[in-house]
Amino acid sequence: MNVPAAWYLILAAVLFGIGAFGVLTRRSALIILMCVELMLNAVNLTFVTFSRTLSDISGQAIVFFVMVVAAAEVTIGLGIVVAVFRRRSSTSVDELAELKG
């Protein structure tokens, strides 16, 4: 008997939590983008697990689209990081406080 789906779901939830903690606490915009990738991967793992358990290929199709969106998101995100670095010489998100009330 194979490993139950629950184990993979718990692993994905823990991975999501680690990524969320990184997004909330790290200061560098680059690391925050990497942590967003961790969270997206956790969701992908959940989708694949559901897909296997329900014998439904739709879960894998959605993971495929999530990967496309993740690639687009990283491209734009890193473009913004480079543009901000040109103006501010820093990638720390704390220093972007112009809109602070």
Binding site: L33, N41, V48, R52, Q60, V63, F64, M67, A71
Partner: peptide, 30 residues
């Protein structure tokens, strides 16, 4: 984990797109 759960194509895409493209993009920007 993808291979273990019979998502072979996605495992290949995961390596090619993530490890091959996205992480290289990160390293390039760093």
């Amino acid at each position: 984990a993808f291979v273990a759960q019979s998502a072979d194509f996605l495992a290949a895409v995961q390596i090619i797109v993530y490890a091959g493209a996205i992480v290289v993009l990160f390293l390039f920007v760093i």
